Amino acid sequence: MGNKGLILSDAQVRQKIKRIAYEIYENNFQEKDIILAGIQEQGYELARLLLEELQQIASFKTTLIGVRLDKFAPTQSEISLDCDVSVVKNKCIILIDDVMNTGRTMAYSLKPFLNVKVKKIETAVLVNRSHTQFPISIQYTGYELATTIKEHVEVQLENDRKAVYLQ
């Protein structure tokens, strides 16, 4: 993909991830355990990158877990964690996805945490498009982007060259 739709370069994506990690640490430095709950695929990959950064700077234990759901049909699919729910009990949860569009995915991803007592739940995204239709507030945002609802934001995190594109 050419640079025409490039929003964030590799260096910029890495800097945003580092900044989010520092913000998470600053707001949770008194915690003993933090759970980074990455929403399947890109959200999980972002959570993994945040875990790497937090392990370098934070004194608390950080655990990475995955949240699985069908993003296109969340009401018809099971929404589950890739760990036992006892792992998140009485812990601070950071729910992470790559892009926040309407808030629907983030809202449905909260379901597994509603049946267990957690200390608090915060949210983090790399790109917030602010087309909010659900009552979801993002505590940690890498980049705020005003777009039309028809535009598409593509985040690449898996390879050595990370980037965000607008299509």
Rank of each mutant, 00 (worst) to 15 (best):
R68D: 11
F29R: 08
R14S: 03
L64S: 01
K150E: 14
L110D: 10
F113P: 07
E52S: 15
A58L: 11
Q12Y: 05
V85G: 00
H131Q: 06
N101H: 05
I93S: 03
I138L: 10
N101R: 00
Q56T: 08
D98M: 08
K16A: 14
E52M: 12
E31H: 08
L145W: 04
N115T: 09
N28Q: 02
K32L: 15
T147E: 08
H131C: 09
K61E: 15
K150R: 00
D98W: 06
G142T: 07
R129H: 07
A47K: 00
Y22I: 02
Q76Y: 14
A107N: 12
A47Q: 00
V87Y: 12
T105N: 09
S137H: 13
G43Y: 12
Q76P: 11
F29Y: 09
T123F: 14
I24Y: 08
V67D: 00
S59T: 12
D84E: 12
L110A: 01
T148M: 12
A124K: 00
N27W: 05
F134T: 01
S77D: 07
E151G: 08
N101D: 12
F60R: 01
E26S: 13
S86Q: 04
K89D: 10
S80Q: 02
G66A: 09
S86E: 04
Q133H: 08
V88L: 04
Y25R: 07
V88S: 03
E45D: 14
K32N: 15
P74M: 14
H131V: 06
A47F: 04
L95T: 01
K16E: 15
I39N: 08
E78D: 12
L36Y: 07
G142Q: 09
K16F: 14
C92D: 13
E154V: 13
S77T: 11
D82R: 00
E23Y: 10
L50R: 00
M106V: 11
I94S: 05
P74R: 10
I121W: 09
L69P: 08
M100F: 15
T148Q: 12
G43Q: 11
Q56C: 10
T123D: 06
E144P: 08
S109V: 09
R68V: 08
V85D: 05
G43S: 13
L126H: 10
